[in-house]
């Protein structure tokens, strides 16, 4: 009986691990957005966008209405061509308002393989109950 329980539990854990593995137990600052649309494939580290440092300097409206960032992690299909062209990050990160794109590693600073997501968000926590992911 105990043994059968063990087998069932192991099966459950395996099933859970299929769903939850790949979402690391992240502890980044609340609101940090990881963007990994193209980075991994291009051999760069994924981008970490620190929401809150930007919030200290600009109101939400500047980026989300004027510059046109959608409220969705990874939903803007940003690439370096657009940035250098002055769109998205490049609207400010042009060496005039903020530092320019030569500083690759300041943005491309996440651990390789980190998925696109808003860290510490409720949706992330609903999708990845920490306790369930650890049960193995």
């Amino acid at each position: 009986m105990l043994r059968r329980c063990g087998v069932v539990l192991a099966g459950l854990a395996a099933l859970l691990s299929i769903f939850f593995i790949g979402v690391p137990d992240a502890r980044a600052e609340y609101g940090d957005v990881v963007i990994n649309n193209y980075s991994d494939a291009s051999g760069m580290r994924p981008v970490v966008f620190p929401h809150l440092f930007h919030r200290i300097r600009f109101r939400c409206k500047v980026c989300h209405a004027d510059i046109g960032f959608k409220f969705q992690a990874g939903g803007n299909e940003i690439n370096m061509v657009k940035i250098i062209d002055g769109q998205f990050c490049g609207a400010c990160h042009n060496g005039e308002i903020a530092w320019s794109v030569e500083n690759c590693n300041l943005c491309h600073s996440a651990k390789p393989g980190t998925k696109t997501q808003v860290h510490e968000s409720t949706i992330q926590k609903l999708a990845q109950p920490a306790a369930a992911a650890k049960k193995k």
């Binding site: 992240a26 502890r27 980044a28 580290r45 690759c104 590693n105 300041l106 491309h108």
Partner: peptide, 13 residues
């Protein structure tokens, strides 16, 4: 913080 790569020089800046 578990997200940034500590092996990246930019992380420490």
């Amino acid at each position: 913080d578990g997200i940034h790569d500590p092996g990246n020089d930019g992380t420490h800046a």
